[in-house]
Design a binder for these strands. Structure first.
Lengths: 254, 254
DNA sequence: AACGTCGTTCCGCAAGGCGGAACGGAAGGG
DNA sequence: CCCTTCCGTTCCGCCTTGCGGAACGACGTT
C-alpha cells in the first residue's frame, strides 16, 4: 500500500496552459503584448513566450516586430472550418424561431471563460437594429443567455464565478448580489427559460432558453425585444418557441 | 566541451501534438472516431485519447457515447471571435475588388495543412453562383490561390508537399508533375499572381494574388470567372487590382 | 543617471506525458 | 454459437518535455 516514488500526475497541465493562451490570444482580436497575454492566460512570462514561439512556428500566431502577437493564418483557417460546419443548419433553426417570434432579433450565445460570445445572429426585420455582433462578448449575470448558462452551474461553481468575474451593474436593474442571483437562477431552472428585464441594456428585454445536454447548458438562444414596441407578456408568450428551438440546437451540437 | 547528460529538447513537441489534434478535429466538422483522429493527427491512440480527454474537460471537444468526438462549445466560441474580428475590414476590401472586377466572385483562402480553406467569400453578382463555401477545402496544386501559396515554398518544401499530398488530377488541365509545377510557380513568382486555367474545375478560370509578408504567402485573394462569359485576357487585365487588394489584406493581417 | 518595464534567454530540476501492452466490449463472419 | 477483429480505454515504466526564477539588454520614463 505504499505510494509510488512520486505522485502520478498526468493531468493535462501543459495542454491546458496552451488552450488558455489560445483563448486569450483570440479573445483579444488585435495584436497583444506578451506580458498582457501572460497575465490574461495566467502564465509565467517565459512559459507564454515559449508557447507563443511554437504557435508562431505553426502559423497559429504571428509575431510582430514590436513583440506583439496576433492571430495567425492557421487559427483563421480552423475558425472558418468550425464556423461553417454547422452554419446553415443553425441559421435555419434560428430563422424559424424568428418567424415565430414576429421578426425579432435572435442570438445564439456560448460560454467562453466567464463571459458569453455570440456565435450566430439573425437581424430583426423590424426597424431598429441591435448593436450586437457575432464574436462579441457579454457578461453572464446580466443577460438572458448568460443566466441560462449560470443556471446549469453548481452552487460552489456559481460562487467562484461571482468572486472571479464580479457582478458588475450594467443598468439599474442588473442583479448584483449573489443571493439575488441564486434566487433568479432557481426560477430559471424551474421555468426552463430566462428573462433579462433591461438588466444588461436599458430598454432591451430578452428571453433565452438553454442549449446543451442535461442541466449543464453551454449556451442559449435568445429573443431580444425593445420595450417601446413589445410588452413583457408578448415576449413571455414566446417561451415555448424558444425552448423548442433550443432543443433542436442541442441535438445539432450532439 | 562535453554534452550535457541528455540533449536539451524544449521543442514544443507536446504543444504541436495538441495543435495537430485540434486541426484534425475541426477539419472533420462532424464527430469522428478516436482511431481516425489519431491517424489524421499522426498520434498514437493513447496520446490522442489523453489529449481528447483534456479537450473534452475544457469544452473544446465533446465526447459522444459511441466514442466519437466532436467540436465543443469553447472551440465554437473562439472560432466566432476569430472570424468576426477582421470580418468587416476584410469584406470591404473584397467588395472593393469585386466592384473593380465587374461583379465576379471573390475568395480569400488560407493554407491549412496541405490544403487551402476559404475564409471569406463575396458572391458574384452575375447569374451563376459557385458551389464553393467558406470553410471548405481545396487542393493547393490545382487552384490559383493554392499556387500563390506554393510559390512561397522552398524547393525541398515543395517536393515534400508533392510527396505527401500528391498532385491529383482534378481536370484534364491539372498540373500533375513536380517539374511542371516548379515551372508554373516560377512564373507565379515572376508575375506576382497565379492563374488557374480550368485546372481545378472545368469552365472555371481564376486569378489570385498572394497575401502574406515577404515571399511566404499564407493565403491569397482570387477572382473566379466562368469561361463562357469571360475571356482569359479580360481576367488577366484585373491582375493589378488583385495584387492591390492582396497588399491591403496583408497589412490587415499585420 | 537611476529606475521600471518590456521581450528574451538560460538552465536546474522534476513534473508531465508518451506509447507499448493489456483489457473488456461491440461488431462481424464463419 | 464461438472465434476473430477492431474498437475505446486503462495502466505504468521510462525519460523526454517544459516550467519558471533569475538574469540580461533594450527602451522609455522620471
Amino acid at each position: 500500500m505504499r505510494e509510488p516514488t512520486v505522485a502520478r500526475a498526468n493531468d493535462g497541465a501543459g495542454s491546458r496552459r496552451l488552450l488558455r493562451l489560445i483563448e486569450a490570444l483570440c479573445r483579444a482580436g488585435e495584436p497583444v503584448r506578451l506580458a498582457d497575454l501572460a497575465a490574461a492566460a495566467d502564465l509565467s512570462k517565459p512559459t507564454a513566450h515559449r508557447l507563443l514561439s511554437v504557435l508562431a512556428e505553426e502559423d497559429w500566431a504571428v509575431a510582430q516586430d514590436g513583440g506583439r502577437y496576433g492571430v495567425g493564418p492557421a487559427a483563421r483557417a480552423v475558425a472558418a472550418m468550425v464556423g461553417s460546419a454547422t452554419r446553415e443548419s443553425v441559421d435555419s433553426v434560428l430563422a424559424d424561431l424568428q418567424s415565430r417570434a414576429g421578426g425579432q432579433t435572435i442570438h445564439l450565445g456560448i460560454r467562453s471563460g466567464d463571459r458569453l460570445v455570440y456565435t450566430h445572429k439573425v437581424e430583426g426585420t423590424q426597424g431598429l437594429a441591435m448593436a450586437s455582433r457575432v464574436g462579441h462578448e457579454q457578461p453572464l449575470h446580466s443577460t438572458a443567455i448568460g443566466k441560462c448558462i449560470l443556471a446549469g452551474l453548481g452552487d460552489t461553481e456559481l460562487a467562484e464565478f461571482a468572486a472571479r468575474a464580479g457582478l458588475e451593474p450594467r443598468t439599474g436593474q442588473t442583479i448584483t448580489t449573489l443571493d439575488a442571483l441564486r434566487r433568479e437562477l432557481a426560477g430559471v431552472r424551474e421555468r426552463g427559460y430566462a428573462v433579462d428585464e433591461q438588466e444588461n441594456e436599458a430598454n432591451i428585454r430578452c428571453l433565452a432558453a438553454p442549449v446543451g445536454a442535461g442541466g449543464r447548458a453551454t449556451g442559449a438562444v435568445s429573443i431580444s425585444t425593445i420595450t417601446f414596441t413589445t410588452g413583457r407578456e408578448e415576449l413571455l408568450a414566446l417561451s415555448q418557441d424558444a425552448r423548442d428551438a433550443a432543443k433542436r440546437l442541442t441535438q445539432l451540437f450532439t
